[in-house]
Design a protein around this nucleic acid. Structure first.
Lengths: 341, 341
DNA sequence: TTGAAAGCGATACCAG
DNA sequence: CTGGTATCGCTTTCAA
């Protein structure tokens, strides 16, 4: 824990010169800078975090609030945390974790203690209590996810509706006239903000293109696998020649397995497209086309917006929807000439 | 962001009195304390984090380093992060996240910048690079998990060997003479520190009690489900009347499913015990006895040790193994009179 | 029981 | 291009 004073002495300059040389906030002669950097490196000097917070205007810390709901998909959540952390480090920012009950009170706490320069809100619920908190505190806040009431907030998210529509477009263009949807369990459509958007996007685009569309949201309670299998069977028997999936990876695997059990090949007999998944859809028995949820895209944008807010830039409130992208992996094809089976 | 000065003025006292009243570090008359607390509450005052770090000796922050390995079990990992955060908050400490590549360089960074008072190391690998870092920096560090080379380190972990032995004891006492073990995929026994400890504890205790013991570590690559199913079939056909599981929740479900497929009832035909799992083993088709890995136990102890180190207490280096506990859920019984099937 | 004031270690303004 | 120094807001020692 070397101090700036020691670096200054070692380099034979004043502490203000050291500060400026290291921050680059004013020009320093090459020779002086070299000596200072050498001394700083030698002493493994880094500005004291507390002193810097006090003297400067920045803490270089973002609070990340994550409620850890029971129905949170852990791997996806981890991917978002990781992506946020990596994005923040690019601006030399650290991430302070605010979990569970602390998610709301913690936001107030870091705001009034000046521990963080801003907050990033993960895993947003439709009626998220952090919305009210964000409005009351003077802490730059960015939501990753869109709560029902987002008036005046800065939000970032994948355009889930467009993602679902993109899947429908793909299938419709291949000639499919009847598609099936396998979604999350029913509770997800009450507790989370995005599953309904996927379903809505799907149904609207299907209607627009006159494509028949049956949806299933298999229960997670009890034998999930059975519920998913039944859903697949019903959809296929109902005439669907393509399936759109918006569910966890386990369910994806079950869907593929059940198609195999039913003797349907992918994509010859049935086309399959995954929507809004953050996991690798090429690792299944057969790789699946995907319109993915890309954590780094959302998190990088969120961090960038947070940085701009911290720097006092005028950032208009509103929802930034990230346009989806279609990734082919060979799981789609024109429907079979006549209904298979 | 009220300041101490404003609180002092509002309460009609000096700032030092406010500081002492709020920190409780010296006795204050009841009346004065009341006025100060009222003023602080009224102004939503909290000491400025930077100023406090600088003037006090504490940052009130622990760094949590988590590498996010590819084979990390996300739900378990999340449970540890959450448990650490909750444990830290009891001491009014916050958690700063150091992920991936930042895990090592980040430790150095927070040490020399004085951003954190200590570090807690999660998801420890046998040859963890953070071991060397921890030895070189002057930051109180506690490992949750035990690296191969832990000389001079403070480590906390479940006593996995004892946990496995406890499962063997239970089964042996019920009369089982032949047990099967379904473990993690092979790579886990190279990359992680604890799976080998479970297997070792199991095999040693089985040998001690003259119980036959066959182990399987089904591949995760490709159709994991198939590998697990085969493992179960082989073990049962090999004469095992009980299974000990140390694997993820999906594999647990597959094991139960395969037993059903084989027509074996739990516990009448086959007893099942889960070891070292952090998830709920009562949520399966049939609830499973468990010797669980309890994140809060490890994390609370780790945080307590970190606090003691921060406070300058002499904490002897060494590995603290948390004794396991057996939780009955009705999945064990004496073996059937004659080999079933 | 309370108050005044000396730091804590940077940043950044004001000079030169 | 470089240096002196006021300042950030709090904790804690020293006095009263």
């Amino acid at each position: 824990m070397a101090k700036i004073h020691e670096v200054a002495k070692a380099a034979g300059v004043s502490i203000s010169t050291v500060s400026y040389a290291l921050s680059g906030k004013r020009s320093i002669s090459a020779e002086t800078r070299r000596r200072i950097e050498a001394a700083a490196h030698e002493l493994d000097y880094r500005p004291n975090a507390g002193a810097r917070m006090l003297a400067g205007r920045r803490t270089q810390i973002f609070a990340l609030t994550e409620p850890f709901r029971a129905d949170t998909h852990a791997p996806t959540h981890m991917a978002f945390v990781l992506a946020t952390s990596i994005a923040a480090r690019k601006y030399e920012y650290d991430i302070l974790l605010l979990t569970e009950e602390e998610a709301s009170t913690g936001m107030r706490r870091v705001a009034s203690s000046g521990l963080a320069d801003g907050a990033i809100v993960l895993d947003v619920a439709p009626d998220d209590e952090r919305v009210a908190v964000a409005r009351r505190i003077a802490l730059p806040t960015v939501f990753i996810g869109v709560p029902d009431d987002h008036e005046g907030l800065v939000c970032v998210d994948l355009d889930f509706e467009a993602a679902a529509a993109m899947a429908v477009d793909r299938l419709a263009e291949l000639g499919h006239r009847s598609i099936g949807f396998v979604g999350h369990p029913p509770t997800a459509y009450e507790r989370s903000a995005f599953p309904p958007r996927v379903r809505r996007g799907l149904e609207q685009r299907a209607a627009d293109r006159a494509v028949a569309c049956a949806t299933r949201t298999p229960e997670a309670e009890g034998p999930r696998r059975t519920a998913v299998r039944e859903a697949v069977r019903e959809l296929i028997e109902g005439g669907a020649t393509a399936l759109v999936l918006h569910c966890d990876d386990t369910s994806h695997a079950i869907v593929l397995d059940e198609l195999a059990v039913l003797g349907r090949r992918v994509p010859e007999d049935v086309s399959v497209v995954s929507v809004g998944a953050a996991f690798d859809t090429t690792a299944f028995a057969s790789p699946i086309d995907t319109v993915p949820l890309v954590p780094s895209a959302s998190c990088e944008l969120a961090v960038e917006l947070a940085m701009r807010l911290v720097e006092g830039e005028q950032v208009p409130a509103g929802v930034r929807l990230i346009p989806p992208g279609y990734h082919e992996h060979g799981s789609t094809a024109p429907p079979p000439r006549r209904p298979s089976g």
